[in-house]
Design a protein around this nucleic acid. Structure first.
Lengths: 116, 116
DNA sequence: GTATTATATGAACAGATACTCATATAGTTG
DNA sequence: CAACTATATGAGTATCTGTTCATATAATAC
């Protein structure tokens, strides 16, 4: 019952150790990747930027993005799950809004990077 | 030769117009999504964070991540293409380093968000 | 030249992703 | 209650992604 040996060559052991020492824990790393994955899709960026300015209902967003309301709803579920948006019901209409202040800031940082 | 009509209901036309008015151009939006996609993978985050601290060769990184050198090389090509890393040759060894100052800052912003 | 070392690259493949479609649910109107 | 409106959700699917594997390339040593 031997452990699998890592056959990778290592030229600079001290660098590998240094990198491992300051590396993130796996769960935090995965959460971080998940966090950025939210911004890795044009539709989600557009939804987030729109909601950063104003509250919108699902069919408003669908009209804005020119995609189906179902697709919007799926994305909004994603954004709800990760805690970026919340909704408020008024009759049958659900109004979505941004609830995370960091979101707009992160998007802006990305934009600044592209434009500089 | 009629254009496809968008059949989506619109409850608040003025909000849709406002969103469209301040929306990003499609090419900039796609570049932005691509930019964030870089951080949407745990392996790439780990490579970028390691290179933010020190120069490393391919097999150092492979040993650190415990994945194949080929996988590392593919990711490094990705990071080279997007302009986040550069390399320097010393004999047969290629040393990679971070060349984009915003990268570490963006990752830190994401981390701050998770930890707050 | 050949052999070796370090890395790069294309193909293939499993898993993830973002959409569409059909259906379900929550609230309103009569 | 039934009919309607707005949204949610599960299944199915085409595309994308990150890896492995096999092979190619670049520099070194002989």
């Amino acid at each position: 019952m031997k452990e699998d040996r890592c056959e990778t060559r290592i030229i600079h052991i001290e660098r590998v150790k240094a990198a491992k020492k300051s590396a993130l824990a796996e769960d935090e790393l995965d959460m971080l990747a998940l966090f950025f994955k939210t911004f890795a899709d044009p539709s989600r960026i557009r939804i987030l930027m729109a909601l950063a300015q104003q509250e919108m209902c699902v069919c408003d967003i669908a009209a804005f993005l020119e995609i189906s309301e179902s697709a919007v709803s799926h994305q909004l579920r994603y954004l709800r799950n990760i805690g970026f948006v919340k909704n408020r019901r008024e009759g049958t209409v659900l109004y979505y809004r941004l609830v995370d202040n960091d979101v707009a800031e992160i998007i802006q940082k990305g934009l600044d990077h592209l434009r500089e």
